[in-house]
Nucleic acid binder design. Structure first.
Length: 670
RNA sequence: GCCCAGGUAGCUCAGAGGUAGAGCACCUCCUUGGUAAGGAGGAGGUCGCGAGUUCGAUUCUCGUCCUGGGCUCCA
């Protein structure tokens, strides 16, 4: 932006036009600098005449972001026309649309308001107002924003000035915004938009800041693309694990256990199959499984650092005796202080008097086990697995179906190893994770490295070492990754493996965390080859993450149609009439004896109805039992996945087929 | 926790200041039917919970719990 060129500058559209490279649907352009990612510029921005440029059609993803950002401006314009006195804050494009945050005096926006705003936006679009960019001095910007009393924008301006950023104003019609752009040439280019919802959002996302009203919208290059997107959203809703979980009788919830799933028999079958799958892997990957307590003396959590670094997320537990002791203590203080008690005193008494904590993580228990006896370097790396149930108090507004719950089980494990074993443990864990995700047909895995948070334990040198170990490990495997600054756990940085749900929200499932703190806090050691004491390193890791969350994401991934190896019912027998019930019962017995999860529909329904029910329940195989089957001793099989009739198969063939498909792909014989 | 929207039968949902309705599921009976819903009848609700306004509240008001969408946080 500040490169001095001796070539004269011209607006982008003029240059492209001269070169005959400006198609009709162009909304912006890429300014290409060798060795750097292309920069999106608007068509009226002057650039050096010899610039390398590429016209962006409306359908290009980068152009879409421009369209959406411009839509946000037009929405803000419409809002301020309809609701004078409303201030604007931030209004960016997002992955699926755009939003703008408003400080609106009086009542929040209603759905009717949204429709009115859309209508006003339509008028602004029809007026074909040009977007213009103006490079200004901080003083000029200040003057404009003070005149319009845009206090949020003024605050932001001062940050930009402090950071030494170039300041620009964008204008369409009479509406001005502090904005770096780029934008479409004119409002007429906004052909398909829709406002979707209102939500509260804190100014700058900080909870102590005032809450603003955020209006979300979406915009596309044309009406058809918008309709396709809305249709896709509808489809995604059908796959929602909360809806399917209810329909397929997988789980249920009760207000008396908020955010805590009950697994119904069918859900429990899948849940157990997932754990069985991981257990088999543990045999192959040299893990040892342990079972640890649920409730601990608070001393454990003081030692581990969970109190106070994680206290807000913990359930504390007390015996009746604990509470009586606290009450007695407080009663005495109350008497001595002449009837006065201050809140701090009460809190102190409570926190100290409530003796127990419910574990939110397994690691402290594993540390105790490691420390329970003298350890040798020969035992390392020691890979300790635990399917213990964890409880975390999640704030009421953040829980969500199965993907964010208050009680869950992780395929958790801690690897105690020597410093020089860290790298290879990280690398082999990455291999393990990818092998597992492949079995579930998850291909879009996002890798994030989360670094030190503000609230943390341990010295900065230790954090430097931990973060480097993770980055080295991921790079050694040649994986692409993003850095999430400040997102690490309080005891160490994390590699996170993210997968998307039906609605496109990204969830962390697998994780590996390097922890140089825990061994220190629990004073863990092992005897080395040199006969001296050494500190082990602890690696926290989970593959599926929490079984609950993984289950939720998996339901959506397969739309409730679980592969045969996970399906709660692998095959169901459908009798043509009651006359064949006895035969069906015999076949059922044989299937079950062979280890197949089979059921039979002996209801009075007609065959067509039974088929419909079985299909709706997404059962992998349906077998019809009638006259022909009784005579031949076989089964007429049809497949959910191939969606076709497989014809008459002998019972042995059916059993062989189901046993084969009954194991995860990576464990099958052939 | 904060902002917004919800909570009516097991499920999906309609309804309205005068003590509730549909479809599916469930129960009984008829039908014994060969590849996506055969028929008839029946039972089932303190309209999330608690207060207030009212002659009367499931409907209006307030509080509370739960769910959903965001903000924020995490597996």
């Amino acid at each position: 932006m500040n490169s001095e060129s001796n070539v004269s500058s011209k607006p982008v559209f003029a240059i492209l036009k001269e070169r005959g490279a400006l198609p009709n649907n162009t909304v912006a352009a890429h300014l290409i600098t060798p060795g750097a990612p292309p920069k999106v510029v608007d068509l009226h921005t002057p650039v050096p005449e010899d610039s390398q440029l590429e016209a962006l059609p409306a359908t290009h993803p980068d152009a879409l972001a421009v369209i959406r950002h411009s839509s946000a401006h037009v929405m803000a314009d419409a809002v301020q026309r309809l609701f004078p006195g409303t201030k604007v804050a931030f209004g960016p494009a997002t992955d699926n649309g755009f939003y703008y945050d408003y400080d609106k005096p009086g009542a929040p926006f209603t759905d009717d308001d949204l429709r009115a705003i859309e209508k006003k936006m339509g008028e602004i679009v029809a007026a074909d107002q040009r977007f213009t960019r103006e490079k200004v001095s901080p003083e000029q910007a200040r003057e404009v924003l003070q005149k319009t009393n845009e206090t949020y924008k003024l605050e932001h301006l001062e940050r930009l000035v402090a950071a030494g950023e170039e300041i620009s104003l964008y204008k369409h019609g009479e509406w001005v915004d502090l904005c770096e752009g780029p934008h479409v040439p004119s409002t007429r280019y906004l052909k398909a938009f829709q406002l979707t919802m209102v939500a509260g959002a804190y100014w700058r996302g900080v909870e102590t800041n005032p809450m603003l009203q955020r209006i979300y919208g979406t915009a596309f290059a044309d009406k058809k693309a918008l309709e396709d997107y809305l249709k896709q959203l509808e489809e995604a809703k059908k796959r929602d694990h909360r809806k399917l979980g209810k329909e397929l009788e997988l789980m249920t919830f009760h207000p008396w256990a908020p955010a805590s799933p009950f697994f119904l028999p069918r859900g429990a079958a899948i849940y157990n199959a997932l754990i069985e799958y991981v257990r088999k892997l543990y045999v192959r990957f040299d893990y040892i499984e342990v079972i640890t307590p649920q409730i601990f003396d608070r001393e454990l959590f003081v030692t581990s650092g969970h109190l106070p670094a994680y206290a807000e997320n913990m359930f504390l537990a007390a015996s009746k005796e604990n509470i009586e002791n606290v009450c007695e203590h407080l009663a005495k203080v109350h008497e001595k202080e002449g009837g006065k008690l201050d809140a701090a005193e009460v809190e102190k008494a409570l926190v100290e008097g409530i003796r127990f904590g419910v574990k939110p993580m397994n690691c402290p228990a594993h540390a105790l086990m490691f420390g329970s006896t003298r350890r040798s370097y020969r035992e390392l790396p020691m890979r300790v697995a635990d399917f213990g149930r964890l409880h975390r108090f999640e704030r009421s507004g953040v829980t969500q179906g199965m993907t964010r719950v208050r009680t869950f089980c992780q395929d958790d494990g801690h690897i105690f190893c020597a410093l020089d074993q860290v790298q290879s443990e990280i690398e082999s864990f990455v291999d393990l994770v990818y092998a597992v995700y492949k079995d579930f047909d998850f291909t879009e895995v996002r890798v994030v490295i989360a670094t030190r948070p503000d609230v943390r334990i341990g010295a900065d040198e230790i954090w430097d070492k931990s973060e480097k170990a993770l980055i080295d490990g991921v790079e050694a495997k040649g994986l692409k990754y993003e850095i999430a600054p400040g997102e690490g756990a309080f005891y160490g940085p994390k590699i996170e493996f993210h997968l998307k749900d039906a609605i496109g929200r990204s969830w962390q499932l697998g994780t590996m965390q390097a922890d140089f703190n825990m061994a220190e806090r629990f004073d863990l050691s092992y005897v080395g080859v040199d006969n001296a004491q050494h500190r082990p390193v602890a690696l926290h890791r989970a593959i599926l993450g929490s079984i609950e969350r993984f289950f939720g994401v998996l339901i959506e991934h397969v739309s409730g149609a679980f592969p045969t190896w996970l399906a709660p019912e692998q095959i169901t027998l459908l009798t043509v009439s009651e006359k064949f019930d006895d035969h069906a019962k015999q076949v059922l017995k044989k299937l079950k004896a062979a280890g197949i999860r089979a059921t039979a529909d002996l209801s009075g329904d007609k065959l067509g109805a039974k088929i419909r029910i079985a299909r709706n329940m997404r059962i992998p195989y349906r077998a019809v039992v009638g006259e022909k089957e009784v005579e031949s001793g076989g089964l007429s099989l049809s497949s959910r996945d191939e969606n076709k009739d497989l014809g008459m198969l002998s019972l042995d063939e059916v059993i062989a087929k189901l046993l084969h498909e009954g194991v995860p792909p990576s464990l099958r014989a052939s």
